[in-house]
């Protein structure tokens, strides 16, 4: 294996959720992993194993309760939340299983929302959103709202939104989980194309067929990387 640059690293990360009653749930229990620049990697594991929790930390949306998380060598656990928000805008694009589009906004609006937070003027926002949507084959759905679109179309809008700021990393949390196999294949094809163009793609899934598209798999069980899945 070629020696590649580490883009992200989790080092002995614990994430403990405290329930209202005071009970604590350890979603991550000492998770350590590395993501290399430009790779397409799958994070797999059974339901409740902590994949989404890991994803949120990798995506700078959440901080570990214990342990460290690095992005391009910087320890993001020390960053102010505004700084984390900026990193999410510029470095990371999220794609979720349930699309997570805003139902009252049109496709174009949903896609340019991240640019609004970058203070990009409206005309430029719209032009860029339309271009990406059209590239993803949604030229005929620009002014449709999510409830008026199919699951596959909605997920492509979500991918367009993830791409609008030209981030280096695409994080997909079961992006094919809500669509049929054929549409799932289409979405994977889009993600593979992005990977070919140099983006780092991280996919959370429990579907082995989806995982088989990735060069590398990280198995998570009980909030830790399972060794049986191979070296980390």
């Amino acid at each position: 294996m070629k020696k590649r640059r580490v883009l992200m690293e989790l080092r002995d990360v614990w994430r403990t959720y405290t329930l209202r009653k005071g009970t604590e749930v350890n979603a991550l229990r000492g998770l350590s992993l590395k993501i290399y620049q430009g790779e397409m990697v799958a994070i797999i594991g059974p339901s409740g194993s902590g994949k989404s929790s890991a994803m949120y930390i990798i995506g700078a949306l959440d901080k570990p309760t214990k342990g460290k998380a690095f992005l391009k060598g910087q320890d993001i656990t020390r960053f102010h939340q505004n700084h984390l928000a900026m990193m999410r805008r510029r470095e990371i694009g999220f794609v979720f299983q349930s699309y997570n589009l805003i139902p009252e906004y049109t496709a174009v609006q949903n896609v340019w929302m991240p640019l609004l937070f970058e203070d990009v003027p409206k005309d430029e926002r719209e032009a860029r959103a339309k271009k990406i949507l059209t590239d993803l084959g949604l030229g005929h759905r620009l002014d449709h709202k999510p409830p008026e679109m199919s699951g596959g179309e909605q997920q492509r809008v979500a991918i367009a939104r993830a791409l609008i700021n030209n981030p280096k990393v695409i994080l997909g949390d079961e992006p094919t989980g809500n669509v049929d196999t054929k549409t799932g294949e289409e979405i994977i094809a889009i993600l593979k194309k992005l990977h070919k163009k140099g983006k780092t793609v991280i996919l959370v899934t429990h579907d082995p067929r989806i995982a088989s598209h990735c060069q590398r798999k990280i198995h998570i069980i009980d909030g830790k990387v399972s060794q049986k899945g191979g070296k980390k």
């Binding site: 995506g59 949306l61 999410r88 997570n100 589009l101 991240p114 609004l116 939104r161």
Partner: peptide, 16 residues
């Protein structure tokens, strides 16, 4: 609430 979560995920700060 969910919308707020989405907006934060795509890069909104608290001030936004």
């Amino acid at each position: 609430t969910k919308e707020i979560g989405i907006l934060k995920a795509i890069g909104a700060t608290n001030n936004h």
